[in-house]
């Protein structure tokens, strides 16, 4: 009887722990590539300080970047990006808050590549839009990483400028590459 109740207790504890084992995966050094090359000049930048977290149980995921953290090859281009287009003094950050919709299909214990669908709210330049995209979540030695690509219609976010649609593409391609720690 005594043994049985101990077994039962352990079992209950085990089950409850399992259902509650919400793990938060996080990184502060994710990468984000930006490409808005239009007709002539190459307009590319990288941000190596992407702040991202996600929860394995709920699929909740967030990304945050500082606009001034984007590095361009050309200093003048970087200045224009901050001052004339993104107005980064007024809107220093861009972020995404959403969910990995098919998080239940991912087996975090098994290495491999899993296709994921992400949906949520993207805020750039103080304007929030609903977005959705597909990506890949890879588990390697128990550590997840997320690779994704999506495009952003620049004018949807209230960003104005003479060159958008000409030297600057209408849609900027964004590539995300985040390796998480647990």
């Amino acid at each position: 009887m005594k043994n049985l109740s101990i077994v039962l207790a352990v079992l209950v504890l085990g089950i409850s722990l399992q259902t509650n084992a919400q793990k938060v995966f996080a990184t502060k050094t994710g990468q984000l590539f930006f490409n808005a090359t239009g007709s002539i000049v190459k307009i590319v930048a990288v941000n190596n300080q992407v702040d991202s977290k996600f929860v394995d149980a709920t699929g909740q995921i967030i990304f945050g970047v500082l606009i001034k953290g984007f590095k361009f090859e050309n200093q003048l281009m970087e200045d224009h990006f901050n001052e004339n287009y993104m107005e980064s003094t007024q809107f220093p950050k861009a972020d995404f808050k959403g969910f990995i919709k098919n998080i239940k299909e991912i087996n975090f214990a098994k290495d491999g590549k899993y296709p994921i669908a992400i949906e949520g709210n993207l805020t750039i330049h103080g304007v929030t839009q609903k977005v959705g995209t597909a990506g890949t979540l890879e588990i390697a030695q128990g550590k997840p990483s997320i690779i994704g690509e999506f495009s952003v219609k620049i004018k949807d976010y209230g960003i104005k400028g003479l060159y958008i649609g000409d030297k600057i593409a209408n849609e900027a391609k964004i590539n995300v590459n985040c390796k998480y720690q647990n």
């Binding site: 722990l17 909740q60 995921i61």
Partner: peptide
């Protein structure tokens, strides 16, 4: 105790 654990859901938002 385990029920209490369950109540602590993480909300990143």
């Amino acid at each position: 105790a385990s029920a209490q654990l369950k109540a602590q859901t993480v909300d990143l938002f």
